[in-house]
Design a protein around this nucleic acid. Structure first.
Length: 562
RNA sequence: UGGCCUAUGGUGUAAUUGGCAACACUACUGAUUUUGGUUCAGUCAUUCUAGGUUCGAGUCCUAGUAGGCCAACCA
């Protein structure tokens, strides 16, 4: 396997070391633990690929576990979206788990902690507790309720569970150390009262466990061997371990938490909270808007699962702050699409071409290769006639030698068709060119084998026969933010950097065969980029999303000339 | 005298655990090309700083410097 030559990331090194120290490979188990309070984004893709990648590498099961302990934010819609996205990325989970399935077990363990004097009910306001918590540089002070009797704690906790108390009136806290230098160890809250319906347990519970009290215990229940999370949970690790210390039995596997740096991507944000803002404030049309860095947005945009997996694989996993260049994601989209996307011709910014010496009523069907990267993709036939569309940017009346496209008196090859020469133009009252009149060389037909067809002409243009063209709406997307790190400015809000021109809609002419394309189909519009049929398409209006442009060396040359 | 974490090209990761700083992206050269695409070849580094140990340090030691995280009844 090529796997063998690949270098390991630091998480894999940890697993390898555990194995060397006698850890049973059969006991390896991982999990991906999203909270169903939003859609998965490209940052999550790294975590998904890490965990499921580990599962594949070590032939270990990977659970999909919903961390659903906060009914105020979580919804079934998000659960469904998350499952769809993980499956689309190409991963299979072992068990579908929910932290809410463990509510009873967690409750029983909580009572046991109370009985052992390790947890107590605090009846202060959250403000008072925050006050006593101290600051990172200052120790906290004990709550006046810290030494309640076990009996009283038990009675109150049971009443909380039974719904006899108002939200905010009591919490259950672990009794650890109010003077700990680690703020999280200063008697953290384990349960709060919430009279809210949960997406799965409905109104069965009036108290809900907090993350710290739920996560490690869920790992333990599922016997997850390596619980991987992002770096901001590093200070939680002592608490993760403290809770486990209280209940792990010797004959069972004890999970361990390890942390890696979250991935930041340039020119976007990867935070569910911020993405929610973009959706709610209407900067985009929804979680799956093709401009969103969500998995569903990328899918709708036309990315392939392999592109995202390869991207995650390339950037790897480490522990330092990072901003990955969006270029790299685009590279992987192009790389995969180049192999799989059929080539077609479409004109997005049309200019009429009339071939004067081509017979008025004649039409020909010319053979065109579907994918030069994949011989098995075969070929198709496309219509040619006297009147064609080409791109405005492919014609200039005058230009220097570096301009390989069509100019007056100059020749170009029409892709899969003939060599033409521009003779004269028509202009409107404002001086805009409306039509280019050309002549063609009938012996220069592509693939005909004639000496004329083998002439080297520097430029090759894509085109569409005007008479046969289909019409389509094409949505051209640009980056959502004009700044590489929109959410890393102390003095400005990330919304200040939203690119107001991130969507341009044009009417395009496409080769007729495209009219049969279906939502999700991906193509390369030759010389332009990769495009994907949007689900907004109707039988009489095809809609394409531009996934990513082709690399454009000419655009760079033009840019530099300015 | 709060605690914890991290520093390797413009970007992201490697470096057989002390032995020629490697891979990918970007950018730039050039070749090929019926996509200015693809492909191919090439160019781009005081490993945060200063000392130290060593035949030899990105890696070990000491002291700094810079950045990040932690004071939700969020996860």
């Amino acid at each position: 396997m090529s796997e063998a030559s690949k270098s390991l990331n630091f998480i894999e090194h940890i697993v390898e070391e555990d194995l060397r120290n006698g850890f049973d490979p059969e006991a390896l188990r991982f999990r991906f633990p999203p909270e169903p309070n939003g859609y998965l984004h490209i940052g999550h893709a790294s975590s998904i690929c890490l965990n499921f990648g580990l599962g594949l590498r070590y032939e270990a099961p990977v659970n999909l576990r919903f961390d659903d302990t906060n009914p105020a934010k979580e919804e079934t819609e998000y659960v469904e979206a998350i499952k769809r996205d993980v499956a689309w990325l190409g991963f299979e989970w072992d068990q579908e788990c929910y932290a809410s399935d463990y509510f009873q077990q967690l409750y029983d363990w909580a009572e046991a902690l109370i009985e052992r004097g390790l947890a107590y009910v605090d009846s202060q306001t959250s403000e008072a507790m925050a006050e006593q918590k101290g600051t990172p540089t200052q120790a906290g002070t004990d709550s006046p309720y810290r030494d309640r009797s076990v009996a009283e704690n038990l009675k109150l906790f049971r009443e909380m569970k039974e719904g006899k108390h108002a939200e905010g009136s009591h919490v259950l806290r672990a009794k650890i150390d109010m003077a700990s230098p680690n703020m999280l160890m200063r008697d953290p809250v384990m349960y709060r009262i919430l009279h809210k319906a949960h997406h799965r347990t409905n109104t069965d519970w009036c108290i809900y466990p907090m993350y710290d009290w739920t996560h490690g215990e869920s790992d333990y229940i599922e016997q997850v061997s390596h619980s991987l999370c992002t770096l901001e949970f590093k200070p939680h690790r002592p608490l993760y371990d403290w809770f486990l210390d209280q209940l792990v039995s010797k004959d069972k596997l004890r999970p361990k938490q390890r942390e890696f740096a979250r991935r930041n991507i340039s020119h976007t944000v990867v935070s569910k909270r911020k993405l929610l803002q973009l959706v709610e404030q209407g900067h985009v049309k929804g979680w799956d808007d093709p401009r969103m860095p969500t998995i569903s947005g990328l899918r709708r945009r036309g990315s392939t699962p392999a592109a995202i997996r390869n991207f995650a694989e390339t950037i790897g996993i480490a522990k330092r702050d990072n901003v990955v260049d969006m270029n790299l994601l685009e590279f992987h989209m192009r790389e995969d699409l180049n192999k799989v996307a059929p080539r077609v011709m479409a004109v997005l910014d049309p200019l009429k071409v009339v071939i004067e010496n081509y017979p008025e009523e004649q039409e020909e069907w010319l053979e065109a290769e579907n994918n030069p990267e994949d011989e098995s993709a075969g070929s198709r036939e496309i219509p040619f006639s006297k009147e064609l569309w080409i791109e405005q940017s492919d014609f200039k009346e005058e230009a220097n030698r570096k301009f390989f496209r069509l100019k007056l008196g100059g020749e170009v090859r029409l892709k899969n068709a003939y060599i033409i020469k521009a003779e004269r133009v028509d202009k409107d009252a404002e001086g805009n060119i409306t039509t280019v009149y050309c002549s063609y060389d009938p012996k220069s037909k592509s693939g005909s084998g004639t000496p004329e067809s083998q002439r080297k002409v520097k430029g090759t243009l894509h085109w569409v026969s005007a008479k046969h063209a289909g019409e389509a709406e094409v949505r051209l997307y640009d980056r959502l933010f004009i700044d590489p790190t929109p959410d890393q400015h102390e003095d400005k809000d990330f919304l200040d950097f939203v690119n107001e021109d991130s969507l341009e809609i044009v009417k395009a002419y496409v080769e007729p065969g495209l009219l049969e394309a279906k939502a999700g189909d991906r193509f390369q519009f030759q010389r332009l980029g990769y495009f994907c049929v949007d689900p907004d398409s109707t039988p009489d209006q095809l809609v394409f999303n531009r996934t990513v442009t082709l690399r454009d060396t000419w655009a760079k040359i033009e840019e530099k000339a300015k």
